[in-house]
Write a protein that binds this DNA or RNA. Sequence first.
DNA 1: AATGAATGAGGGTTCATTCAT
DNA 2: AATGAATGAACCCTCATTCAT
Lengths: 198, 198, 198, 198
Amino acid sequence: MRVDAARNRDRVLSAAREAVARGDTSLQLNELARRAGVGVGTVYRNFPTRQALLEALSEDRLLALLAEASAALAEADPSSGLRRLLRAVLDVLLADEAFAEVLAIRQEARSAAAGLKTRFDRAAEDLITRAREAGALRADVDAEDLRLMVCGVVHAARNNGGDTDSAAERYLAVLMAGLRPDPRSAVPRCGTRSLPPE
Amino acid sequence: MRVDAARNRDRVLSAAREAVARGDTSLQLNELARRAGVGVGTVYRNFPTRQALLEALSEDRLLALLAEASAALAEADPSSGLRRLLRAVLDVLLADEAFAEVLAIRQEARSAAAGLKTRFDRAAEDLITRAREAGALRADVDAEDLRLMVCGVVHAARNNGGDTDSAAERYLAVLMAGLRPDPRSAVPRCGTRSLPPE
Amino acid sequence: MRVDAARNRDRVLSAAREAVARGDTSLQLNELARRAGVGVGTVYRNFPTRQALLEALSEDRLLALLAEASAALAEADPSSGLRRLLRAVLDVLLADEAFAEVLAIRQEARSAAAGLKTRFDRAAEDLITRAREAGALRADVDAEDLRLMVCGVVHAARNNGGDTDSAAERYLAVLMAGLRPDPRSAVPRCGTRSLPPE
Amino acid sequence: MRVDAARNRDRVLSAAREAVARGDTSLQLNELARRAGVGVGTVYRNFPTRQALLEALSEDRLLALLAEASAALAEADPSSGLRRLLRAVLDVLLADEAFAEVLAIRQEARSAAAGLKTRFDRAAEDLITRAREAGALRADVDAEDLRLMVCGVVHAARNNGGDTDSAAERYLAVLMAGLRPDPRSAVPRCGTRSLPPE
DNA sequence: AATGAATGAGGGTTCATTCAT
DNA sequence: AATGAATGAACCCTCATTCAT
C-alpha cells in the first residue's frame, strides 16, 4: 500500500504541475483532486496546505538550482558564475509561475523546501563572496537580496504589455549591471574592473 | 444631495484607505461598506468593481507623481531628475501597497486612472529621453519598463525578511546603477560621467 | 406643472412599451426610470407597483378589445362574431406579452384596468349568450373561461419550439372547434348546426 | 456513504416537493437547504441549478406518464386511449405546479428528464397516429402540441377565480372536443363517429 | 412634484476543510 | 489509507423601495 500512496502523491503532483504549466496558479485542492483522479482527502493527507504543495512542487526546481550554483562556483570567472546563476533562477521562474511564491516568500514551516532554499542561499553566498572579493559585486547585497531581486525582475516582466521573456531579458541586464560596484565610489585598484578585459 | 453623496463616497474611500494602510489589500466591497457605515449598494454605485475603487484611490497618487515628474523635469541635471522620480514612485508604492496593482497592471478600461497613468508615462518619457541624450541612461528601457522595475523593487523589498524600507533603498540603488549605460559598450566622450574617475 | 407630470408619465409608459416590445417583460421600475430619463421616484409616484404599470399599459389594449367586441356584436352571424373576438384577443396577446398578465390574472385593486376588464367580460357575455342561443356555443363556458382559454392558447404557443404564430393559429382553431356544442349530446333540432350552411 | 448521500439527496427532494405542494414554486436552493436541514453545498452538489432540481422532481411524474401512455395504447378505442392520456397529464399538472415548467419548456440540456420527455412524446405520437387513422383526431396536431395545449389548459384553469379543478375539467372537455376532426371538412365514411347521431 | 442616492434584505455561488464510511 | 459527500462561512451582486434634498 506504500506504493499506492506514493502513486497517489505523484498523481497529485503531476496534476499540480500541469495546472501550473497551464498558468493556473490557484492550486485549489478540490479541483486538483478531481484532475488527479483522487479523493480530496488524499490530497489533504499528502499536502495539508497549498503552501505544502507549492513546496513539494519546488523541490525539483530547488535541486536544479543547487546544481546550477555548484556549476557556477566551478566557473573560473566569479562574475560570469554569478551571472550564470541569476540567469538560471530567472529561467526557472519564467517557466514556473508558482515557484516565485516559494522563492520570494518567507517560509515559516520547517519544510524540505525551506531547507533547500537555505542551502541554495548558502551556495549563492559563496558565489557572492567570491564575486565581491573579485570586485565584481557591490558590497550591499546578500543572497536573499539577489533571490528577491530576480523575483522582482520576473514580477516586472510579467506585467509588461509585450513579450514577457524579452522584458525579463532586459530587466535582468539592468539588474546585473546594477550589481557591479559603483565605479565612482570605488577605490581604484590595478586592473580597474569596470573596464572590459583586454 | 450632491453633498451627501460626496460624503458617502468619501467615507468609502476613507475606509478603503484605512484598510490599505492596515495592510488589507483585499478591498472587499461588502466589508468596506460595513466599515464605512454605508449600504452595500452605495459602495457598488460609486465603485462597481474592486478595480474601480483601486483606481479611485490611485488618482491622488498619480497626480502627485505627475507633479513630481514636472519637478524632476525642472531639475538641471537629467540624471538627478530621473533619480528623483524613481525615488518618488518608490516612496508612494511603499506607502500604499494597493497602488502597486494600479501601477503595475495593464489597465483595460478607459478610466481616469488609466489616463493619468498614460500621462505619467509620457512625462517619464520626457525625462528618459533627456537622460538618455545626456548619456545617463541605457537605451533599452522606456517609461513602462521603469515603472515596472520600480514595482519589482517594491515587490522584492516587501518580501525581504528584514526592514522593507532599507531593502527598498538598496534595491533602488541597484536599479539606478543598472540604468546607467554600459560603460563597456559606451562610446567615450569628453567628461562622460559614466567613466571611472582617473 | 400638470403638463410636465403628464409628460413624465407618458415617458415612462413609452419606455415600458418599448421594453415589452423588446420582449423584456420584467418591467423593473429602476431600469424603466433610467430608460425614460426620469427619476425612480417619478415612476413610483405614477405607478406604485409593477402591477399598476401593467394595468396602465393595458388600458389601450382593453379599449381596443372593447371596440372589437362591439364590432363583433354587430356582425350578423353569432358564431363568426365570437370567432372574431377570440382572434382579436389572441392577436393582442401575441403582440404584447405583458398583457397576458393583466388578462389572465385576477385583479385585486379597484383599478381602471379592472373596470375595463369587467366591461370587456360583459361585452363578451353578450356575444356568448347570443352564440349559445344560436346553438353555436357549448353551454359550460362563460366570458372568463373564454378569456382564460385564449390566454392558455398563447401560453402554449409561446412554448412551442417552432413558430409561435402558426402554433397559436392551430391552437386557436382547436379551441374554436372545441367550443361548438357537442353534437353527440345535442338534442337534434331542425337545421342541425354542426353541418355547414348550404 | 452512498447511503448517506442518497438520504441527503432525498431530503432535498422531499423539501422541494413539500415546497411545491405548498405552492412555492420558486425552489430557491438556499431556502431549500435550510428546510432540508442540509448545507447549501449539498444542494448544489446534487442539483447545480433550479432546473436540474425541477427535472429530478419530474422524473417520477414522467415515468408515471409513460406508464399511462402504455396503458392508453393498450386500450381498444383509440379515441378513449388518447382521452385517457390527456386526462392523466392534466391530473399530474394539477397536482404538481412545478411540473408544468418541465413539460412546457424546451429543454436544452441533455438531461434524464429531457430524455423521458422525448420518450413520452414518442409514446404519445403512437397514440396520436392511431387516433388519427381512426378518424378521431384532427391532422394538424402532434405530440408537442398536445402536451403544450394541456399545459395551456392548466394555465388557464389556475387563473380561474373559482375552483381550479372544475375549470380544468371544462377546459379539457373543450380541448378534447376541439381535437376531433372538423366534421365539415371530413370525408364522410360509414360509421364515422364524428357525425351527429341520426 | 421630481430627483436619484441610499438602503439592505435577499438570493446566488464557491471552496477550503472536515469527517463518516 | 482513501474516498468524496457534506458543510457553511464568506463573497458577490441585484433591485424594490424609501426618503432627504
